[in-house]
Write a protein that binds this DNA or RNA. Structure first.
Lengths: 152, 152
DNA sequence: CCGATTTCGTTAGCATAGCTAACTAATTAT
DNA sequence: ATAATTAGTTAGCTATGCTAACGAAATCGG
């Protein structure tokens, strides 16, 4: 019995996956409010923590925003003491942005909260399904490559 | 080979799932720009289309925003002709918000684009993994119940 | 029935986050 | 040396979020 009738099964799957992703992120995002920083800032900070210091334009590209937007995000993060501008030695136009120790600490703590809140939920599902989930994630990671936790 | 060693496997899974969800949504969201409406409006419109007309406060609660925010989202949708205010007969304070035919049409077309763009990606993964994915989603839906496509 | 309270929505004012266009400064190319 | 390119910033618009304060309608107490 492998026949489906009307909606292509892959599309039904896509629709359900889409919905699940929306709800999942909405759930974990509740943990973020504790940091006192907005989502764009946390996301940019995350890139800096995981990928290391980089010029503003590259960070903007990684975050899929335009440079003026990143200028302001960086300004906000700097005002909070979470990043610092370094000023490229070789190229006077460039401005390297680097996470400070405080920034790293805040980000990692926040990530931990997110992950823990999600892990709490995952523990409620049976191990057999967890195993399916694990295989599914591995497959999804081929489509949407992991790390560099950008824009949620 | 079922043993894992150091970091609680569920937490590693949570972290990867979190990342995959972020990237997945970022991918499908590209399709939204074609609608000309912002994410908050599309999300609210989605609730109206799937759950039917409702008072502003209830819509705000469904979207997890405060009433003043929903007042403006509704105003924007109304200006675009995608929803209309109906004005409750029995209670003069209430304002029922309903999707117009145009609103339903725009939303459903947008959803179709999102789902198709995701389905295109899913078709690239092997059927065996798709089967795991299907079981995984079913499990996730017990945690994050489906339908009512709110805030991405 | 009438005033007090509660409830629903809006208005006002603030912050974040996105954009384009126009500018400045620095590097590279001619 | 000057022109063109590149990197960031500034200015100004829109959209989304919030809280506080307000107005109007319903409900409750007497």
């Amino acid at each position: 019995m492998r026949k489906r009738k009307s909606p292509a099964p892959v599309e039904e799957l896509a629709s359900r996956l889409h919905s699940a992703a929306i709800h999942l992120l909405r759930h974990v995002r509740k943990a973020d409010s504790a940091t006192g920083e907005g989502p764009a800032r946390l996301s940019a900070l995350s890139v800096l923590v995981f990928a290391g210091p980089m010029p503003l334009g590259k960070l903007a590209a990684a975050e899929q925003v335009k440079p003026p937007t990143m200028t302001r995000i960086a300004a906000g993060l700097e005002k909070s003491g979470l990043v610092e501008r370094v000023g490229d030695a070789g190229d006077g136009r460039r401005v390297l942005i680097a996470a400070t120790a405080k920034g790293k600490q805040l980000l990692l703590a926040g990530q931990r909260h997110r992950v823990e809140s999600l892990a709490r939920e995952l523990r409620t599902i049976p191990p057999k399904d967890l195993h399916s989930l694990q295989k599914a994630i591995t497959a999804l990671e081929k489509i949407f490559p992991p790390h560099s936790e950008k824009k949620p």
